[in-house]
């Protein structure tokens, strides 16, 4: 079942001379893990804002096409309604944490929904538990590391029990270790809780093998979409400024794809193929 339908979406910001998003069509099924990548300034952030209705509701500008999230047309429903179906995690956690303690931060969403106090509390505790930071509940967002901040941001959205989580380069400001730990949480949410994940990410090395599909945006247009190996092994991506995993580059040089039909996405897959020899 499609949980997100984007049809003929074009958008330009109020003072923008050219469209920031041009004729994007995208359908995401419930429970899918979709990876979106593309060079800087390609419209990834803009697309994320379109998905949760911030565009056009709060930004104005020229919007055309349709975005339907879990049955809600974004042009007809306010952001707070869409936010209960689709959570958006931003790039810099510093700007999305605005409360003075982690616990208040996570409770902010359910409080806004005017849920009973017991429910607010249990949701906040549960969400902190899911991302594994229950021990930080009384810390200030200022006192914790970037990776922990991003986990707080994810927990704050999970507390609203969204069916879709959209993440706009959540690991951009994180070191590799914290990045992996955040990405592992996403994989777990996707496989264990069935949350649909749309992840905008440059570090394909770490995530390509987790995704069901991979999309490449360039200059506001959706150039490619398909299974990660199809997309990353296609010739078109070589010329673009995206971070193709090293395993893929090596495999391409060795022209694995044409010889054996095997398309490794991670260094582990690649090593297995090499170790396996002629199979």
């Amino acid at each position: 079942m499609a949980i997100i339908e984007v049809q003929g979406l074009s958008y330009s910001y109020p003072d923008s001379p050219k469209p920031n998003i041009l004729d994007v069509n995208l359908t995401v099924d419930e429970g899918e893990f979709v990876l979106i990548t593309g060079p800087s300034g390609c419209g990834k952030t803009t697309l994320c804002r379109c998905l949760n209705g911030l565009i056009p509701n709060s930004y104005g500008g020229a919007f055309s096409g349709r975005v339907v999230v879990d049955g809600l047309l974004t042009t007809e429903h306010p952001v707070y309604e869409i936010a209960q179906r689709l959570g958006l995690v931003f790039q810099n956690p510093e700007n999305e944490l605005f409360c003075t303690t982690v616990e208040r931060e996570v409770a902010f969403g359910p409080e806004n929904l005017a849920l009973p106090r017991g429910e607010v509390r249990s949701r906040a505790e549960e969400a902190l538990g899911v991302v594994g930071i229950s021990h930080l509940w009384d810390k200030s967002p200022e006192e914790i590391s970037g990776g922990e901040q991003q986990k707080v941001a994810i927990a704050a959205l999970l507390a609203m029990k969204p069916r879709v989580l959209v993440l706009d380069e959540p690991t951009a400001n994180l070191d590799p270790l914290s990045a992996r730990s955040v990405l592992n949480i996403l994989a777990k949410l996707n496989t264990e809780s069935g949350v649909t994940i749309i992840l905008v990410e440059h570090r394909l090395e770490m995530v390509a093998h987790m995704a069901d599909r991979c999309a490449v945006l360039d200059d506001g247009k959706l150039l490619l979409i398909g299974e990660p190996d199809e997309v990353l092994y296609s010739e078109a991506v070589d010329r673009m400024g995206i971070g193709i995993p090293k395993a893929v580059k090596v495999a391409k040089r060795l022209s694995f794809g044409s010889k054996s039909g095997k398309k490794p996405l991670s260094s582990r897959d690649l090593a297995d193929i090499i170790r396996g020899g002629k199979q």
Binding site: Q84, N95, E111, N112, A114
Partner: peptide, 26 residues
Amino acid sequence: RRAELVADAMESRAFGASKKRTSLYV
């Protein structure tokens, strides 16, 4: 700029969904 981003984050967490919001602590 930061204020705009914070406003986005607040809206994305259903700020304004209900006139009478709950408070975690009273």
